[in-house]
């Protein structure tokens, strides 16, 4: 059930704002049918979450269609015009570079970049926000971006690094395929961070854009000799704090 300003939402009118079979409709339908209560202060706050989930998926599709490489941290690569590669294999913004330009560059000069699935997923959140926030606001809100899996994430989107058990899953969620019996010599296959694209599909950097069985099959191919436990999709999700990000958005729009 969706609760807006302490009132249950009658979803007909908001549903009509989105095309049939759209991920926005899927999300609203799932929330409405759920035993969980999804609270929002305003309809705009809900729409912001829908927009951001859409943009996370768009960013995932864009990265999938780019030449962004899969590399383990030791071999990670970035465009030195925008990013400094740190000793641990992460990327830190170069001085006097606009964060918005640096994030865009990952998608425009994708062939210069390579990292593993968690960092790639973190990049998707920044790209999604860049599509929503005015660039100036984005630069002010995220002046020091550091990209290295879920390590030292900017506090404004710190929640994307957490996962928790949830009752409902939505397109735009971060999910995780765990591989408990991974080959010890290939720890990069210990699991795959993915974005739920809706319609049963997931995007995970390094594997691609597939339904769940394919992710499990690929992970299972990288198990220890004599493995007896299959890879599986965990019942957890990682989500940004959409409400806080909406608050920042409201402020940014009011100023601009």
């Amino acid at each position: 059930m969706i609760i807006i300003n302490n009132q249950p939402l009658e979803t007909t009118s908001i549903m009509e704002e989105y095309p049939p079979n759209s991920i926005e409709r899927t999300i609203i339908e799932t929330m409405s049918a759920s035993n969980e209560r999804y609270y929002y202060n305003s309809i705009e706050q809900l729409k912001f979450e829908l927009r951001m989930r859409r943009e996370i998926i768009n960013a995932a599709e864009a990265l999938y269609n780019s030449d962004f490489h899969f590399k383990v941290f030791r071999d990670s690569t970035c465009n030195p015009a925008y990013w400094m590669r740190t000793n641990d294999g992460g990327f830190s913004l170069q001085p006097r570079v606009r964060p918005s330009d640096a994030i865009r560059d990952i998608f425009t000069n994708s062939t210069m970049y390579g990292t593993e699935c968690a960092t790639a997923t973190l990049i998707l959140y920044y790209k999604a926000l860049l599509e929503i926030y005015p660039a100036e606001a984005f630069d002010k809100i995220f002046p020091r971006i550091y990209l290295m899996n879920w390590h030292n994430i900017d506090r404004q989107i710190g929640e994307v690094g957490m996962v928790r058990q949830v009752n409902d899953f939505f397109p735009g969620d971060r999910r995780y395929f765990a591989n408990p019996d991974v080959d010890p010599t290939t720890p990069e296959w210990q699991g795959e961070n993915v974005i739920d694209l809706g319609n049963g599909l997931y995007y995970g950097h390094g594997i691609g854009r597939f339904a769940a069985p394919k992710f499990i099959e690929v992970l299972n191919e990288n198990r220890i000799e004599g493995a007896d436990e299959s890879a599986y999709l965990m019942d957890t999700a990682g989500r940004p704090d959409f409400k806080r990000l909406y608050g920042l958005y409201e402020k940014a729009v009011a100023i601009s």
């Binding site: 899996n149 994430i153 690094g161 957490m162 996962v163 995780y176 765990a178 720890p187 699991g191």
Partner: peptide, 10 residues
């Protein structure tokens, strides 16, 4: 638990 940095920041 097999929770590591690959999955979560915490």
């Amino acid at each position: 638990t097999r929770e590591y940095f690959h999955l979560t920041s915490d």
